[in-house]
Design a protein around this nucleic acid. Structure first.
Lengths: 205, 205
DNA sequence: GCGCAATTATGCACTCATTGCAGAATTGCA
DNA sequence: TGCAATTCTGCAATGAGTGCATAATTGCGC
């Protein structure tokens, strides 16, 4: 990585940090891109060569969870079916929860609940992730899943996790207990994927 | 409904029609709010007293499908469990497909695929719908579903339908055959909800 | 070290969505 | 007909995002 790249990465990080700080202190809408650029000591125009939009600041790293899931699909044990693979991936992700510690995560979560633009972006990312996972799943299990089934399975999986989270995140009490939350989410996913578990062949009809 | 209300409704419709026409002809981004207002013969400023934003033009009616689903929940047969109710609702919705005929529907679908702001709004609506349905479901089946399970079930249901649609809508060939599409979506939902069907009590673990 | 080509960073001007405000135009009802 | 409530509009701003032209940096070959 050249000096150029390193400097660019540093500036990028500075922008994220400055934004997090300003959002936290003054609120998302009250913070202008100009403010953020100024805090990171670059020109306002330059901001847009680092991030295409203000929302992007909150999603600086491509979601590693998608990659982890895709990896889990590739690394499946021969006996595992599609559902096992997804559930295994979910468990692994829960453990090395590096996303939970990011200083951005909490802020991001709060803003997703309150700022439409941010929520839109988050959901867009979710859909893209779903599509990506479904694609790999269909490729890995060509005998058991056609495109539509793979998408439905992934959708049900993500939907269940997401639905459970939607409720869990509304309850501050539960948020205080990450272990319990993870357990609840895992259970939701388990339940949603049950029909896919026991049958080696496609559950047609 | 007073003259005032009728006139207001007429103007509102005129805006939707004008927008649909302009979006269709020139594209979403190339059509400014000012253009739309001018086409409907009202001031640009006035536009914002009819719609809070440009996207809203594409979602003029509150989604009747949510209401239909909620009604289906209330009208359930005593023997029906949560999953049956959802599947029944899905079938009913498919039949009186009044949404499919709206001249807006096709355009909306295309724009959801291509315009981030529109997609964001659509997804937001989906999440709200999910929350609403889960709420009613939990209330109707207090013995079988807690808040989290209801949200997970609803999420799996909506996710499966949505995932299936995501794939189906990418294929112009399938779009030409609505009946087949509906069947595929129904099957996806069936599969996703299988575990909830046969067991009267909660499928704990 | 020097100089050139590629890559970045900026300033400026502009388009657009969206909002607050204040005054003009309409409408409903007494 | 006349007043009060409701709408409609123009005007001025704010703030995101973009195109363009120019200046500042950096990577490399000599």
């Amino acid at each position: 990585m050249s000096l150029r790249d390193r400097k660019r990465a540093r500036t990028r990080q500075a922008l994220v940090d400055a934004a997090a700080d300003l959002f936290e202190r003054n609120g998302y809408d009250q913070t202008t891109v100009a403010d953020i650029a100024a805090a990171a000591d670059i020109g306002t125009r330059t901001f847009f060569s680092y991030f295409a939009s203000k929302e992007e600041l909150l999603f600086p790293e491509s979601d590693s969870r998608v990659q982890a899931t895709v990896d889990a699909i590739a690394a499946r044990k021969p006996a595992d079916g599609p559902a096992e693979v997804l559930l295994t991936a979910l468990r692994n992700i829960g453990e090395d929860s590096n996303d939970m510690v990011s200083p951005l995560a909490g802020l991001r979560m709060r803003l997703i609940q309150t700022v439409p633009a941010v929520r839109g972006r988050a959901l867009q990312i979710q859909l893209d992730a779903q599509r990506e996972i479904a694609r790999h799943l269909a490729a890995e299990f060509p005998d058991q899943l056609d495109q539509v089934s793979a998408a439905a399975l992934t959708g049900a999986f993500v939907g269940a996790v997401q639905g459970a989270l939607q409720v869990l995140l509304e309850d501050p009490e539960r948020q205080a207990n990450p272990a319990a939350m993870r357990a609840a989410v895992g259970q939701a996913a388990d339940i949603a994927l049950t029909p896919w578990l026991r049958h080696g062949s496609a559950t047609r009809h």
